[in-house]
C-alpha cells in the first residue's frame, strides 16, 4: 500500500500469541493466536471501526497499538516512528498523543479518587503545567464532555453509567491526544444513553480533529461512526473497506453473514428477508482452522479454502478482502468499468 501523507498510525503484520504453559517448569504446550498478522493504516482525522465477534482479537489489537501488551511479531508505526520496541521511558511522552477509552465505566475509574483526581492524573503523570492550574484545565474538559464542572470533587459512584463514560472520555481528552482507541465505548450503556455518547464522540472529533479507532461488536453503531471498517475473524482482518461499500456490498461471506444476522427493528422485515444462517460457534483461537479460518462455517468453502490461505486483496477501490470466493462480485464486474478493480 502506498504511504499516505497524512498517515497517523500504521500497523503491519501485528501478532499476539498468548502462550499456554503447563507444569512447574511452565513448559509451553501451545499458544492462543489472539491476533495473527493484522495490518491496517489509519489516516489523520478519520474513524476506523473494528468489528468482530467475541474472541476475534479486536480488543487485543487495541491493546497492542497502545502497547499495553507487547506484540509477538509485527510493528506499529505511529506518526512515522516505529514504536513496537520503544522503551517505556521513551514511550511515555508519546502516550500523550495516544489514549484509550475503556468499555466498562465501572471498573475503569478508581472508586477512591474524585473526578478531579481522575481527570487531572494525566497532567500530573506527564508533568504538564497548565496556564491556570490543573483544576481549571480539568473543569474545562468536564464541561467539554457535557459534565458539570462543579462535579470536580465528587466520586465515581455518584454518577450514572453514561456520566461515568463521559468521565472516562474526559480523562482521555485531557492531554489533547491525536489518536483515541475506543474499546466498546458504548456497549455497557442503555440505548438512550448510547446515542448521547456516540454524538459526543462525533462532536469532539469535529471540534478537536481527533482520529479514532473504534472497537465494537455492534455493527450498526460502527456503521454510524466509522469512515472505514475492518472486520476481524479469529485474529485476522478478513475485510476492510470504506463504510459505504463494506455495508452495501460486503465482499467476504463472513461480513455478509454478520450483517444479515443483525435483527432489524422493523416488523416488515420479519418475512421476506433473506437470512444467512451460520452454523455453530466461532472455533477456538487455540486451534484455529488451517488456511482460511472461516472455512468451517462458510457455505461457499471448497477444497482450496482448506489448503491455501487467502490474502487481503483490493477488489474495489479501497476495499480489501481475504477470500477465495468473494461475494457480490458480479455487481462489481458489471457496474465498475475495468479501471480500479485490481490494484
Amino acid at each position: 500500500m502506498s504511504e499516505h501523507p497524512d498517515m497517523l498510525l500504521s500497523v503491519k503484520d501485528l501478532s499476539k500469541h498468548f502462550p499456554i504453559t503447563t507444569g512447574l517448569l511452565k513448559r509451553q504446550v501451545g499458544a492462543v493466536k489472539a491476533v495473527d498478522g493484522v495490518s491496517f493504516d489509519v489516516v489523520k482525522g478519520e474513524t476506523l471501526g473494528v468489528v468482530g465477534e467475541s474472541g476475534c482479537g479486536k480488543t487485543t489489537t487495541g491493546r497492542l497499538i497502545t502497547r499495553l501488551i507487547e506484540p509477538t511479531a509485527g510493528k506499529v508505526v505511529f506518526e512515522g516512528e516505529d514504536i513496537t520496541h520503544m522503551s517505556q521511558s521513551r514511550l511515555r511522552p508519546l502516550r500523550r498523543d495516544m489514549q484509550m477509552i475503556f468499555q466498562d465505566p465501572y471498573s475503569s475509574l478508581n472508586p477512591r479518587h474524585t473526578v478531579g483526581t481522575i481527570v487531572g492524573a494525566p497532567f500530573r503523570i506527564q508533568g504538564i503545567k497548565t496556564e491556570h492550574g490543573i483544576k481549571r484545565a480539568v473543569q474545562d474538559i468536564l464541561s467539554l464532555v457535557g459534565l458539570n464542572p462543579e462535579h470536580y470533587n465528587r466520586y465515581p459512584h455518584e454518577f450514572s453509567g453514561g456520566q461515568r463514560q463521559r468521565i472516562g472520555i474526559a480523562r482521555t481528552l485531557a492531554l489533547k491526544p491525536k489518536l483515541i482507541i475506543a474499546d466498546e465505548p458504548v456497549s455497557a450503556l442503555d440505548v438512550s444513553i448510547q446515542a448521547q455518547v456516540v454524538n459526543l464522540l462525533e462532536d469532539l472529533q469535529n471540534e478537536l480533529g481527533l482520529t479514532y479507532v473504534v472497537i465494537a461488536h455492534d455493527l450498526s453503531v460502527v456503521r454510524h461512526i466509522s469512515d472505514r471498517v475492518a472486520v476481524m475473524y479469529l485474529g485476522k482482518v478478513v475485510e476492510i473497506g470504506g463504510r459505504k461499500s463494506l455495508y452495501s456490498s460486503p465482499l467476504h461471506p463472513y461480513t455478509n453473514a454478520l450483517l444479515s444476522a443483525v435483527p432489524i427493528p422493523d416488523p416488515a422485515n420479519r418475512t421476506g428477508r433473506e437470512r444467512i444462517r451460520l452454523q455453530g460457534d466461532v472455533p477456538s483461537p487455540l486451534n484455529p482452522p488451517p488456511a482460511c479460518r472461516f472455512h468451517t462455517r462458510c457455505w461457499k468453502a471448497q477444497e482450496v479454502c482448506k489448503t491455501v490461505e487467502p490474502v487481503l486483496t483490493e477488489l474495489a477501490s479501497g476495499h480489501q478482502v481475504a477470500c477465495h470466493f468473494p461475494e457480490n462480485m458480479p455487481v462489481l464486474e458489471t457496474t465498475a468499468p475495468a479501471e480500479n478493480t485490481t490494484a
Partner: peptide, 17 residues
C-alpha cells in the same frame, strides 16, 4: 431515534433522549 439502524441510510446524528 436513539438507535443507529442498518436498514436505513446512515444518519449524520442520532437523536438521543
Amino acid at each position: 431515534g436513539s438507535m443507529p439502524r442498518l436498514d436505513r441510510e446512515p444518519t449524520d446524528r442520532l437523536q438521543p433522549i
